[in-house]
Amino acid sequence: LVRYRTISKIPQITLNFVDLKGDPFLASPTSDREIIAPKIKERTHNVTEKVTQVLSLGADVLPEYKLQAPRIHRWTILHYSPFKAVWDWLILLLVIYTAVFTPYSAAFLLKETEEGPPATECGYACQPLAVVDLIVDIMFIVDILINFRTTYVNANEEVVSHPGRIAVHYFKGWFLIDMVAAIPFDLLIFGSGSEELIGLLKTARLLRLVRVARKLDRYSEYGAAVLFLLMCTFALIAHWLACIWYAIGNMEQPHMDSRIGWLHNLGDQIGKPYNSSGLGGPSIKDKYVTALYFTFSSLTSVGFGNVSPNTNSEKIFSICVMLIGSLMYASIFGNVSAIIQRLYSGTARYHTQMLRVREFIRFHQIPNPLRQRLEEYFQHAWSYTNGIDMNAVLKGFPECLQADICLHLNRSLLQHCKPFRGATKGCLRALAMKFKTTHAPPGDTLVHAGDLLTALYFISRGSIEILRGDVVVAILGKNDIFGEPLNLYARPGKSNGDVRALTYCDLHKIHR
């Protein structure tokens, strides 16, 4: 019993810090008490220290592992850092350059016999395009090294910054494609005289377009951006097909006994025919423009016929181009109408809503002055909100995010209106959640004399007048207030005048 009563005193000691020596009952000389009392004092002292730490809000209350900052290894790049964003855009520009100039170089340097010394005699450094290609190869190699040090988000939505895990993730992902696209074939085969082989191998750079397509997928929600990307894709495919079309004609031209190829026909049409040795002929500019003209006309199913396939190889390629053109029509131009419709969806919704308003007016036989006010209010409210119901949009977000959005939407009023000066951010967040926005066209009466005042109004834009009878008592403008002081009276009061809008007004109100 003594032991039980001794232990039962522990909660009292913990909360009230009572010393055991003052209790005459606990001072009985028993061996059990002498053993338990020192333990009680020690526990009391420890609990006292913990309570003191909690009340003082000291940093040592938290466990040590929670006080440590997340460790980022040296030379690790955050995937959302500004440097990584700028670097990704730079790589994107280099990939676009590669997609345009690599097929052009591979096709127009394929057994090209233009006048001038061969590239091997001039030297590697004197070729501007080769120098640019070398810079692109170096940048792609540097990009691989950067990807080995860039964080990523795993399946659990955690940012991984450990170098080993980053390397394994990159090896399992895009490393092989990036490595093949970054191989400097110019340096590996330079001086061997195989410019045709170098041009063909350099087309491996186009593998990076797969990554670019995935990154550009984030802009699919913007109709104008999608339309622009589709047109660029169409032009890029036409450019690639033009390079292939020229390569076919250029390879067949020296081996044909009869002059029936499209390059021969082009030379005869523009007065620059090929001679018996295969030299001469149109310039590279004429060849490229004509090839691009043929691919565009074939892809769009126009086909004027002034550039036509004559050999079997050219006919087979033309059939493939027609098939590609039909697929592009289905996948690209078939979506253009939907994209344009999405661009004008706001206008369509406006006309639909206006039609419903006019049908309501016609069905209920609203008189002319009231009908005009109804239409003007709808037009003004639509121009202010673009038909978007803010309350319906915010309803799907958590309250903390709703408060931040409301604070942002009402920031101008909260910053410049005098009653809100000096208020804490928590108070402003709470008030912003209570605001209701209303609009009024010129001549609209917001409050009639004798109406119950259940709200306090803040003028965000425009001006109003307060009338008693036919006498203008006051004219209020931006950041002015009218209405009933909230919670100042037990019952809502009545208006002693009319409140009429002089201009288009936007008002925020808080109800009782």
Rank of each mutant, 00 (worst) to 15 (best):
G281I: 01
Q379C: 05
N386P: 01
I135A: 04
N386L: 07
W87T: 01
G173K: 04
H408R: 03
T120A: 08
Q372G: 10
D286V: 01
V321N: 01
W174C: 03
L187P: 09
L292R: 01
F363P: 01
V210K: 13
A330R: 08
D217C: 12
G249A: 03
W240H: 01
T347V: 04
A381L: 12
H79L: 01
N250P: 01
G334T: 03
V95W: 01
A247R: 01
S283G: 01
A130H: 05
Q253Y: 06
K425G: 11
Y104S: 01
R259L: 01
N312H: 01
G334C: 03
N312K: 01
L176W: 11
F83K: 12
L188R: 14
D143G: 01
I361A: 11
P184K: 01
C232K: 01
N156S: 13
E359T: 03
P273N: 03
F171C: 14
A99D: 01
I248V: 01
N368E: 08
N335Q: 15
A338Y: 09
L394A: 04
K202D: 01
A348M: 13
K215T: 03
V210E: 08
C232Y: 01
G303C: 03
F140K: 01
T311Q: 01
K215M: 04
F420M: 05
K285A: 13
G334D: 05
V136C: 12
Y104P: 01
H439T: 14
Q68P: 08
A430F: 09
G223D: 14
P103M: 01
E157K: 13
Q402I: 04
L266Y: 03
N410P: 03
L176P: 08
Q379V: 07
I248A: 01
F190M: 12
L197G: 03
P128Q: 03
L187F: 11
S383M: 10
M231L: 05
G422Y: 01
L409K: 03
L292W: 01
C243E: 01
I244E: 01
N275V: 01
D286G: 01
Y246A: 01
G191K: 13
G278F: 01
F190I: 12
A119I: 07
L263S: 01
L413W: 04
A423P: 02
F420S: 02
Y288S: 01
A125R: 14
A99H: 01
F83I: 05
A449I: 08
P103S: 01
G164E: 06
F108S: 01
K436Q: 12
I77T: 03
I146G: 01
M139V: 10
G199R: 15
A106N: 03
G278E: 01
A330T: 01
Q68I: 06
A225T: 05
W382V: 03
F140P: 01
P118Q: 15
H364E: 01
T438I: 11
H239V: 01
A119N: 11
